[in-house]
């Protein structure tokens, strides 16, 4: 008879999982704080050109002082022929317009004014201070950029931004 009996019946004790919710909440809060939502998924392909010393737009996004428009080749290649120079404009929150209107400078002005009307009520910057950020594909002919500029000039939306991928951060 031995004094020490092997306790082989007990096995490993169960893991205490009561702190699991804490971990999950921590993760949840992290992502809640760190994410900025994408306005919408564009229907055009945009490969941004590279640049250095660009301005970070995050603070403007947080204050809703910026609107994005996309310009590039349409994802649906068959429709490319419908647009000026084969590049389509994508304006978020616009009901799918007719192919003819989709690339038209009139729709830019209407879209921008509509955007201004749906801003949160605590945002009281005049239209000339609200940035319009043009996210254009590398291959876009610049005349299209200038068409957009003209449309914005007509409605006094005078602050624009040319989106690039900032490679100086690395």
């Amino acid at each position: 008879m031995s004094k020490f009996r092997k306790e082989n019946k007990k096995g490993a004790p169960g893991v205490n999982t009561s702190s699991l919710p804490d971990i999950v909440f921590m993760l949840l809060f992290f992502f809640m704080v760190a994410t900025t939502t994408k306005e919408s998924d564009p229907t055009v392909d945009v490969q941004r050109p590279q640049g250095v010393s660009a301005t970070d737009l995050t603070p403007y996004k947080q204050r809703s002082e910026i609107d994005f428009l996309y310009i590039g080749e349409p994802r649906n290649k068959k429709r490319a022929a419908d647009f000026k120079l084969g590049h389509a404009l994508f304006l978020d929150n616009v009901a799918q317009p007719q192919p003819g209107d989709l690339y038209s400078t009139n729709s830019v002005a209407d879209w921008k004014l509509d955007k201004m009307n749906t801003k949160p009520s605590n945002m009281n910057e005049p239209i000339s201070n609200v940035i319009t950020c043009i996210k254009a594909d590398e291959g876009v002919p610049t005349i299209l950029i200038f068409d957009i500029r003209d449309a914005l000039q007509d409605i006094d939306a005078l602050k624009i931004a040319y989106a690039v991928e900032d490679k100086s951060a690395f």
Partner: peptide
């Protein structure tokens, strides 16, 4: 996280 970066420019008044 992918940041939105851009060059801010001003269009002259019409």
């Amino acid at each position: 996280m992918e940041k939105d970066t851009a060059y801010i420019r001003y269009i002259p008044k019409k």
